[in-house]
Amino acid sequence: MANGLIYGVLLDGEGGGKTLDWTGVKSWKPEKGELWLHLDYSVYEVKEWLFHESALDVSVAETLLSSESRPRFSLLDSGVLMAWRGVNLNPDAERDDMVAIRMWREEGRLITTLQRDLMSINEVVNALAKGRGPKTIGELLVDMADKMVWKIGELVDGFDEDMSELESRVIENVNFSLKSELSVLRREVISLRRYIGPQREALMRFSVEKLNWLEQNDRILLREVVDRVTRALEELEVLRERASVTQEELQNRISEELNNRMYVLSIITAIFLPLGFLTGLLGINVGGIPGADNPSAFRYFLLGLVIIIVLQLILFKWRKWF
């Protein structure tokens, strides 16, 4: 791994393969069998090999070493160049932070490059180690696409569960923190959809191209993969709409809650406004205040305030203000 060669497998055509190191890779000839090279493009030895020893066109080598790549399918004279995105299941990874993998398929050889670990690739390697993996390069590519799309579907199902939970919480209780949670989920859905759309187009192009190294069974499975990624894309679109509707509903409920609070404050203000006026008026320090010499004046004043409050409540109730 330190030299950039993550996996080097010479397929045996029976579902297994022989593991090769750099020495075996450099001595490989097409007549020895189909070879799959899985490389870390950030390692210097990989860059040197791709540019100077792989016999690849410079533009192909540059694409395999690109740090940013949009899902694509390009049929060239000497082979097929593809780029896909897989779910990032590495520790502490963001759900919408997908891992890019670039692929070059030519006669007898498949070269794939990435920088971060991708669980779908590891599953293919484990199957090859047990002798139950793909038998050809074409089957290997379809198997990789199938496992990536399954992981995408599981991620979309997780988004759907989170969305259902947020919808329930919005209905049950108005919480200002829900607004930020909805915004995060909506951002994740939009970000994932930005990758899945081009990936569907790339897989669809892959499934319809007349490639002589792709068997009929592989084409059938690839069409199923395209159908699944299409459904995932449609579910993402529905999730985005649900998030928008839920966010609007939450905003309406928050506004309603604030209006209710303002209404209560307005009622309280309306009740105490005349009381405050009277107490302020009688509290001025000048001569001639009514009842200043009467020891019972304060009790009469309090009784008058109570009567005013009762009359106000009766008036508010009659006007149906509460």
Rank of each mutant, 00 (worst) to 15 (best):
G158M: 09
A232P: 00
R72Y: 05
V46E: 04
V43N: 10
G287L: 02
G17R: 10
R169I: 08
A243R: 01
G153L: 03
L20Q: 04
S59Q: 11
Y41L: 00
V229I: 15
F272H: 02
I267S: 08
G8R: 12
K18G: 08
E188S: 13
F73G: 06
G280C: 09
T136K: 07
S177P: 00
V225Y: 02
N88D: 09
S177F: 10
V25D: 06
G276T: 13
Y44L: 13
G4R: 04
K135Y: 07
N122H: 13
W36S: 05
S266D: 09
L273A: 15
A129R: 15
V99G: 04
I254P: 02
V124N: 06
L35G: 07
M103N: 11
L315T: 07
D157T: 08
D227T: 07
D96W: 08
N3Y: 10
S120V: 12
L214P: 03
P91F: 10
A61Y: 03
L211C: 11
M262H: 14
R72N: 11
V60T: 06
E215V: 04
K320W: 06
V58E: 13
G24I: 09
R223V: 01
F322C: 06
S120I: 06
L236M: 13
K210C: 00
L192Q: 01
L118N: 07
V229G: 08
V9M: 05
E62D: 14
A100W: 08
L75E: 15
V60H: 03
L305H: 05
F322D: 05
P198F: 02
S207V: 10
V125W: 06
K26G: 04
